[in-house]
């Protein structure tokens, strides 16, 4: 996934300063914004890893923007910028040493990467749902068979797609057959796809 580092702070000096400190360690594209509300002009931000350094004055508004960015299939990593020096990992202080700032951003990215690696295996329940999807059942039927709500089925399907990188039903069916989740002894696999 492509990455963008977005620095949001009302002070030009701070924005450009952070950019100067980080650009040597991170070859990514940077976006420097005056206010969190400027994010709404960037509809091209989708399917990206976004590292957001946000001034603490936007603490309230940022959540709704993060949600919008997540809906556009971005991964969000965020760090707060505060006025003082900060010992906390996820907060960058204006008086932090530049090496500490680089380290904090690196840690933030690594933590998120580990999290996304954990995701790759399907849980038992997700496998159950996937089997039924592959056999051609609709969400409502799957919910009834597994005694769960449709909402839960949808949420499982979303996670399956994220983990496997496969979206279409026929693609998921191929995965299920390849991994022997469904028994194809008595059916011609190509009829399922």
């Amino acid at each position: 996934m492509d990455r963008r580092i977005i620095i949001i702070h009302p002070s030009t000096i701070v924005r450009k300063g952070l950019h100067a400190i980080l650009r040597d360690s991170f070859p990514d594209d940077f976006l420097l914004l005056n206010s969190i509300h400027d994010l709404q002009d960037y509809s091209s931000l989708n399917k990206l890893d976004l590292i957001l350094l946000v001034n603490d004055s936007f603490a309230v508004e940022k959540e709704s923007y993060f949600k919008k960015l997540k809906d556009l299939e971005n991964n969000i990593f965020s760090l707060e910028i505060c006025q003082d020096k900060s010992e906390t990992e996820s907060i960058i202080g204006l008086y932090d040493a530049s090496t500490d700032i680089v380290k904090k951003v690196k840690n933030c990215i690594e933590a998120q990467e580990e999290k996304s690696n954990e995701l790759s295996e399907l849980s038992d329940r997700e496998q159950d749902v996937l089997k039924l999807v592959a056999l051609g059942f609709q969400n409502k039927e799957i919910a009834e068979k597994l005694f769960i709500s449709i909402h839960t089925v949808i949420s499982h399907r979303k996670n399956i797609t994220e983990k496997l990188g496969i979206k279409s039903i026929s693609g998921l069916t191929v995965y299920a057959i390849l991994n022997k989740l469904i028994d194809t002894k008595n059916i011609d696999p190509s009829t399922l796809i």
């Binding site: 990188g165 496969i166 979206k167 279409s168 026929s170 693609g171 191929v174 995965y175 991994n179």
Partner: peptide, 12 residues
């Protein structure tokens, strides 16, 4: 679907 085709070949 063409993305899925790639994913299947690359990953599985």
């Amino acid at each position: 679907k063409i993305y899925d085709l790639k994913s299947i070949v690359i990953k599985y």
